[in-house]
Amino acid sequence: MIWDALALVGGLAITAATVFDVFATVVVPGRVSGPINVSRLLRTYMFGFWRGTLRVCARRPNPRMGSVFGAMLLLMLLIVWVALTLLGLSLIAWALRDSFTPPIGRFGESAFEIGSAMMTLGLSGHGATGWARALVVVAGLCGLQIVTVTLSFIVQIQTALRARDALVLKLESRAGSPPSGVVLLAVTREMDAHDGLPKLFDDWEGWAAMLLYTHGAHPVLSYFRSDKDGLDWLTALGAVLDAASVTIAVLDDVPGGNARLMHDGGVRTVHRLCHAFRLDPRQVTELSDEDVDAAAAQLEEAGYAVRRGCGAELRHWRRAYRAELAALVEHFGVKEPAWLGGQDVRAASH
């Protein structure tokens, strides 16, 4: 009787915790505290194994994390949810084994009974009476709901990826690959889109807010990479933040209001994501006066009026996000945004 009671209580606890985790992960915006967090546990343990394997294969200290990891994470999430629910309900069935006809003799039979009910296979060789009837119905509902909710989760992932990557892919023609904030500003001026800078920063401010909402609520989205090696959502965010910092500190003939708003939103997104993945800020090398002067000369050549001697102010604005951005870049194994960039994008614009 004691073992039956323990199996009943344990099964109820495992099943309730798993069902709560499914709805907290998929349905509820943001993360609701619960007894378990399967998604975070899988990310923690699978990431270390996956990164170690890539290091051996690629022979690089920080190899690029491809989208395969995100897909594997989603698959394992579904498998673990189903396995935990099956375990919990099987324990309950074992505790109620005398309510089945004929009585269940082994734990494997109870697992098969519940698995058949969850998958609606109809292969059960046992009849159910009393509480066992309710258990079989609940098992069918749990199996159906987990699969349905997971499929809707995949649709959410695809929708969020389309919304995220559409603006990122447009950045290549303006800022190169890897993107550069200085090149973005220069090409925008040379293409007579100078008046479009406020709208550009408005678009990226909204994009950063969307990123904070979707990737904060579903961190697995962060592991889905762009098809292009040098153009990633994180690299793009860093490049546009650089463009906003340069606009605020260096450009003398461009209103900085929209750039400040984008800078504030982007910094908040970088900090929140760094905290969500439990990363410590990294030590970064700040821009030298020569780097600042080279960027000012490139922007002046493009037609902007620039301020001289603004290196300290520019470093101040970049310091707000560079350490956290470097931690995220190292974690995901993507390229950092370029500072000056190449000449291929600017040459193509003429």
Rank of each mutant, 00 (worst) to 15 (best):
A95R: 01
G125D: 11
P63Y: 08
F153G: 08
H126W: 13
V149M: 05
W131K: 12
F100P: 00
E109Y: 06
A128S: 14
M46D: 09
I154G: 07
L135H: 01
G130R: 08
L89C: 05
W81G: 02
V138S: 01
A132S: 10
M119K: 07
M46R: 07
V80W: 06
H126D: 04
S116L: 02
V136L: 14
P61E: 05
L135C: 09
V149G: 07
L89M: 07
S110G: 06
R40P: 05
L41V: 12
L135E: 00
R133Q: 13
V155W: 06
F69V: 05
L74C: 11
F69G: 06
I157E: 00
D98C: 10
M76F: 15
I154Q: 04
L96G: 02
G125Q: 15
V80F: 14
R64T: 12
L169P: 01
A132F: 03
A93R: 04
R55P: 07
M119P: 01
T120L: 14
R60I: 13
I146W: 02
L169W: 12
A111L: 07
M65R: 01
V147E: 04
L84S: 06
W131M: 13
I157Y: 00
G125W: 10
T120I: 14
F69M: 05
L75H: 09
L141G: 07
A111H: 04
R55K: 13
N62S: 15
F107W: 00
T101L: 15
L74G: 11
L78Q: 05
G122H: 11
L144G: 15
A93P: 04
S99R: 10
R51I: 12
I154K: 00
S124Y: 03
L42N: 00
G70C: 03
M119Y: 12
R162A: 03
V147W: 07
L161D: 00
P102T: 01
A166V: 08
R97E: 02
L41T: 13
A134H: 14
M65K: 03
G52M: 06
S116V: 05
D98L: 14
L171P: 04
L161Y: 02
M65G: 01
F100M: 03
G66M: 06
L144H: 14
S124T: 14
L87W: 07
L123S: 12
A117T: 03
R64G: 08
Q145H: 13
L78P: 02
D98P: 04
L169T: 06
G108N: 01
S152M: 13
T159W: 00
V136F: 06
T120A: 15
T101Q: 15
